[in-house]
């Protein structure tokens, strides 16, 4: 069992996962399945963004879906209305999401816990309302058609499902790679120190505003990239893209997978997207199951699937290490005893 655990979290397992993703289109029963998987990858990218600000940095951002929509609309407007080429528009979409994120972050990140969550909830709604009402820019409820597919530079046709799948996969790998590097770095540790508490982090000389803002902008950039990819896959955007329910969906994915874990966003998103797919009849009513699921998880398994697994593994590892070094174990025991006597 323990060997299985180390296998699952080691380098080998990552390569295995990647190999599975690479051959998936060959094994899939239909193009539709490939399409679903590609969309799951795109959502996962956005969830990785949410994980940076909420999972690592501990700030519950309820506007994440809004930034996803901003990325999608930026790409749509630039390519369909202004005739931009795909890649410049794609970069611009990410930058727009980052810039709006910086603006929102400057105001909202000065707020503590509840206020931040409430504020971002409202920001998410403002984005939704603006997209719905600002017809000159967004075409309102009609939405935008004719969005460019990713430009294959004459080599690949990304308007086909399978090539697009590999493009989405490439971006997902990039997203995970960067998230992993971030989490293991001093910067990631700084974010996690903030999650542990503002006061303690500040006493360690951490500039709260600067670090929170950086985490927030990174997260909105992820959302923007995901949104732009989404728009170029569906080739249509409408105000529904900004529906706050998407934010709640992403929180569910993250919660199921595990806040602040590297593979939680992937596990949660892909897992739930497929469960929802296989329960097609549930599509509209999926929240009847997800709602209570969120509550039950948050009460009984707040660290999600991946987090719980890692916690279990860490305990196993340290136990194994202690069993090997009996001297260290003996040194610890008296202190523990004394404490229980106190």
């Amino acid at each position: 069992m323990h060997r299985l655990a180390s296998l699952l979290s080691g380098r080998g397992s990552r390569l295995f996962l990647l190999a599975c993703a690479l051959v998936f289109p060959l094994l899939a029963k239909s193009e539709y399945q490939v399409y679903v998987m590609a969309s799951a990858f795109i959502w996962a990218i956005a969830v990785y963004g949410l994980n940076i600000i909420t999972g690592y940095c501990g700030q519950l951002n309820l506007a994440h879906g809004g930034f996803f929509a901003i990325g999608a609309y930026a790409l749509a407007i630039l390519t369909a209305d202004h005739g931009w080429n795909f890649w410049p528009a794609f970069v611009a979409a990410a930058l727009v999401a980052a810039a709006v994120g910086a603006l929102v972050g400057l105001v909202s990140l000065r707020l503590k816990e509840h206020f931040f969550a409430i504020f971002t909830l409202c920001v998410g709604f403002i984005i939704y309302l603006l997209i719905d009402k600002w017809e000159e820019l967004t075409h309102g409820a009609v939405g935008i058609r004719g969005i460019a597919a990713p430009d294959g530079l004459g080599l690949v046709d990304f308007s086909q499902t399978v090539p697009f799948y590999y493009l989405a996969l490439a971006f997902l790998v990039l997203a995970i790679w960067f998230a992993g590097r971030l989490a293991a770095s001093l910067l990631g540790r700084t974010f996690m120190a903030i999650r542990n508490g503002d006061a303690l982090a500040q006493s360690l000389g951490i500039d709260l505003m600067r670090n929170k803002l950086l985490a927030f902008v990174l997260s909105t950039t992820y959302a923007g990239v995901a949104g732009a990819l989404y728009a170029s896959m569906i080739r249509f955007v409408g105000p529904e893209e900004a529906n706050p329910n998407h934010t709640f969906d992403m929180i569910t994915y993250l919660l199921v997978g595990g806040f602040g874990t590297l593979f939680g966003p992937l596990a949660g998103t892909v897992g739930i997207v497929w469960i929802t797919q296989s329960l097609q009849f549930l599509e509209d009513y999926r929240m009847i199951i997800f709602g209570p699921l969120i509550v039950v998880l948050v009460i009984f398994m707040p660290r999600g699937v991946v987090g719980t697994f890692l916690g279990w593994k860490l305990r196993k590892d340290t136990e194994a290490a202690r069993a090997k070094g009996p001297r260290a174990g003996a040194k610890v025991a008296p202190a523990k005893e004394a404490n229980t006597n106190a």
Binding site: F178, R181, L182, S185, L186, L187, G188, R189, T190, M192, A193, L204, G205, I206, L214, L218
Partner: peptide, 17 residues
């Protein structure tokens, strides 16, 4: 404990990238 010494370091986003 590792983050305790963070304030004496200068690495930023670019260094991570």
């Amino acid at each position: 404990l590792i983050v305790g010494h963070r304030l004496r370091t200068r690495s930023g986003l670019w260094d991570v990238l």
